[in-house]
Design a protein around this nucleic acid. Structure first.
Lengths: 216, 216
DNA sequence: GCCGAACCGTAACGTACGGTACGGCTTCTG
DNA sequence: CAGAAGCCGTACCGTACGTTACGGTTCGGC
């Protein structure tokens, strides 16, 4: 999985270019993969010539848009200093909550839809970009927390990757695929909080250390 | 969620029409949403005129293709007569294994991709069809098993839907979204079996009855 | 004030593809 | 065997859209 294209190139953009990409992003959310170069140009109040000069072609514009958004949305990194069960639980809930908010946002849904569509006829690697800045970025942030939890004797697992995937499954469940497939799935703030707490408790039930601070 | 369009209309198809839809399906797997009416006609050795007469337009052909495939692929229904822990475990593992096989198949990936793409610009309801014959069909088959397990005192949960979603999350984890986004994820028969067993054990750890047959 | 660069708006080009029309072939029916 | 119906292959039409080209405008540097 390509691991490049993270934050580095998001700084090689003019303010004007960022504004154009924001316009493209808004259009992407509204129209899906239907967006035309003409529409982007009109929305961004720029000429098509400029679009082609800056981004090469349609795929280039799409890729730049996805990377631009990806460089903005990041699941908050939680410091692994939480050594007690309370702070670990809070961290996990925070991760779960953030992730649910991300995958249920209009922007994420639109981006994932276009990336999934393009993954079929593999001209560009939008899917890889989304994956890299989504699920894999999340894993990179969460694993240190899991490891710290294990170091502190609060968690038990053999493989951090497997543990992460279990957590991921408990949090996301069927939410993302249902949203991508067009299911109306109202995720209120309260519902997300509840789901995050439930997923965290389930994860702790599976991987919480039986020995040590099992006082409860 | 529309609950119609299940098996009923898959029988209103000529053998020839089924063959045409199979050709379209194969093309869909190969080309994704790129398939053209001309390509389908050529592959199926039929005229475009026939395609339009039979299926109306491109969306009609796509919908018919998705429904045709959906009418074929069904997760095996397991009889809820298994009253002991062993058969319940076997049933759950069977469900998990079948589901993993389905979502990792080329056909499912292609179908979900096109459905996701179309869910964006909501002209048709491919997403609803896929969802109905996939995730919701699975729930309909699995819930009786869960209920039977609860009746037999083997499982504990308050809401079957929530319990199902937990099981779903433990089984699918990040597999489907990664595959849809183009991640190469080799799922061997052995890996699927292992994942199914792990997910089942995790589910039992969360929802297995503590009282009663907790002898192990 | 003049020049060139960057950019906007728009017109124009080429192509791909959805949809339609039509001629010819096979099969069925009376 | 004649006529009709269904279908194949293909040519054709209209449009949407990616891409290019160009005239006009703004703006920083000399």
């Amino acid at each position: 999985m390509l691991a490049n294209a993270d934050i580095d190139n998001s700084q090689a953009l003019t303010e004007r270019q960022k504004a154009v990409l924001d316009a493209a992003l808004r259009l992407l959310v509204e129209e899906g993969d239907h967006l035309t170069m003409t529409a982007v140009a009109r929305r961004a109040s720029c000429s098509k010539e400029t679009l082609y000069k800056w981004f090469g072609d349609r795929d280039g514009l799409l890729t730049a848009t996805v990377q631009w958004q990806a460089s903005k949305v990041r699941v908050a990194s939680v410091d692994g200093k939480g050594l007690d069960l309370a702070s670990l639980t809070a961290s996990l809930e925070r991760f779960a909550s953030d992730w649910l908010k991300v995958i249920s946002s209009d922007t994420s849904i639109a981006l994932n839809r276009v990336a999934v569509g393009h993954a079929g006829s593999g001209k560009d690697n939008l899917g890889a970009v989304v994956l890299e800045n989504g699920r894999f970025a999340l894993a990179r942030r969460l694993k240190p927390v899991l490891e710290a939890g294990r170091q502190a004797g609060l968690l038990e697992f053999t493989d951090a990757e497997t543990a992460f995937r279990t957590f991921f499954g408990l949090v996301a469940r069927d939410v993302q695929i249902r949203l991508l497939l067009g299911d109306r799935l109202e995720l209120t703030e309260a519902a997300i909080g509840g789901d995050a707490a439930r997923a965290t408790q389930q994860f702790l039930a599976l991987h919480g250390a039986k020995t040590g601070p099992q006082s409860l």
